[in-house]
Design a protein around this nucleic acid. Structure first.
Length: 421
RNA sequence: GUGACUGUAGUUCAAUGGCAGAGCUCUGGAUUGUGGUUCCAGCCGUUGCGGGUUCGAGUCCCGUCAGUCACCCCA
């Protein structure tokens, strides 16, 4: 901080991302995009801001996300707006609002962008964070559950995440799940006194989450708790078996976790999470599942769906030791000022118009500092336009990798760079 | 949101309550116009911020802000 000035700082839990981190960022996004393309998914861009109703109805008013983690404010007309805490609800709203289900029987989308949750920040847990994700609309087929999981698996390998586990579960459909929840609630009610305070509240608000509690006395009750797999209907059971069959076929290893319960109410049947032990408490870097009633909840024609979202910052943390090629400029010009600089500027303009990346320091400095700068800019070539070169109309081109240099006439410079870079 | 810990130069870290320092980075130089290694020199601070105790506070106390970790939750 400069003395006498006052610091304007960023709000907690948001990040500035400088160029040295952008190479890794782009590598992750490009890897994801190329996998999306290989599965024939197409990009959709939806607003980061929606009417609060979109998330309240979509995600569920009793969830942690909606009840305490949303950035919500009023517009000037007094309508309640919210910065999106996740991507699916907005995509579903757009799908329904534009009547997309009338066009194609199956729609496959991917998206990426910032999400916002008012949580207490921690490493790998930000208030503004970025996700990419995908959604499929229009099919009950378990093939698509597999396709989504397979796609996340491919992206994870492609970006170089060393060790991760895929947890999968089925939480049933509308009918069998509610039957299960009644049984679950009965079981825990009879053990009400052994539950921690949080769980006594969960018993009313979100009984599925009882299975998630790490409190010792609560988790010991889990052993004898009714398990969802004993309650799901034949349809859900068959669906889950088929998903696993596809995963086996694709040689994709997974771990069944009968207690995997996700914090969004819209899921049905398949849920999954990609987890790692390298992110502390933030162990999931991707997650998703099926949501067969969400579209009709938004007033659309009943249309099933399945999707996932992955956290870009968390993925970056997982691969931060992995070297990424840093892109530098093609040519850094070295000059001695005056006419030498004027010739350089003219040549730079020509090369740039031909798509060759050039840079130069306009100040007159020693060769030593200019070469240092060329090094730092990761230049492929250093081109010297000094007094001798202006006289002979030949540039001295130094290959920064080999250290070799040669004379190249001004008019042949662009061809030389193009052919050798 | 609850609890614990941390906060010193651009950065990584030192400094029994007694003159705020080092490595790296950065800038310049080591005989005419050549980077990465080496050597020399230089720049960089109201010790996160605000109070208090003290002859004296980077150090102790209170508050505040931010970060980290755990809980919670999830990407």
């Amino acid at each position: 901080m400069i003395r006498g000035s006052f610091m304007i700082s960023k709000p907690p839990g948001v990040e500035d991302i400088f160029p040295d981190k952008i190479d890794r960022w782009n590598f992750v996004l490009q890897s994801a995009f190329s996998v999306f393309q290989s599965y024939n998914y197409r990009e959709i861009i939806v607003p980061v801001m929606e009417f609060t109703e979109v998330f309240a109805r979509g995600i569920g008013t009793e969830t942690d996300i909606v009840s305490k983690e949303m950035f919500t404010f009023e517009d000037r007309g007094g309508r309640s707006l919210t910065l999106r805490p996740e991507g699916t609800a907005g995509v579903v709203r757009a799908y329904v609002e534009n009547g997309e289900y009338n066009r194609l029987s199956i729609c496959k989308f991917f998206y990426c962008g910032p999400m916002f949750r008012a949580e207490k920040p921690q490493r790998g847990r930000l208030r503004q964070f970025n996700q990419f994700g995908a959604e499929v609309f229009g099919s009950f087929d378990p093939y698509y559950d597999y396709e989504i999981i397979s796609m996340v698996n491919d992206i994870s390998h492609k970006v170089g995440i060393d060790s991760f586990k895929i947890l999968i579960n089925s939480i049933g459909c509308r009918s069998c799940r509610s039957e299960y929840i009644i049984k679950l609630r009965d079981y825990y009610k009879s053990n009400h006194d052994k539950l921690c305070k949080d769980c006594q509240r969960r018993l009313e608000t979100n009984p599925l989450r009882l299975l998630d509690c790490k409190n010792e006395s609560c988790s010991s009750l889990k052993v004898n708790a009714p398990a969802i797999r004993d309650f799901i209907c034949n349809d859900c059971k068959g669906h889950f078996e088929k998903v696993k069959e596809y995963l086996d076929l694709g040689n994709i290893a997974y771990t069944e976790d009968p207690y995997l319960v996700r914090g969004l109410d819209y899921y049905t049947k398949t849920t999954f999470e990609f987890v790692t032990d390298k992110l502390g408490g933030q162990n999931a870097f991707a997650g998703g599942g099926r949501y067969d009633y969400l579209v009709e909840q938004f007033g659309g024609k009943p249309t099933p769906g399945v999707g996932f979202a992955a956290g870009i910052e968390r993925i970056n943390l997982l691969i931060e030791d992995r070297p990424i090629d840093a892109k530098g400029t093609d040519v850094f010009f070295i000059h001695t000022g005056g006419q030498s600089f004027m010739e350089s500027v003219a040549l730079i303009r020509k090369l740039r118009l031909l798509g060759i990346s050039c840079d130069v320091d306009p100040e007159v400095k020693g060769f030593k500092s200019q070469f240092k700068r060329a090094e730092r800019e990761n230049a492929r070539f250093a081109v010297i336009i000094g007094e001798d070169e202006v006289q002979s109309r030949e540039a001295t081109v130094k290959d920064q990798k080999t250290g070799q240099q040669e004379k190249v006439p001004f008019e042949k410079l662009s061809d030389f760079i193009k052919n050798n870079k």
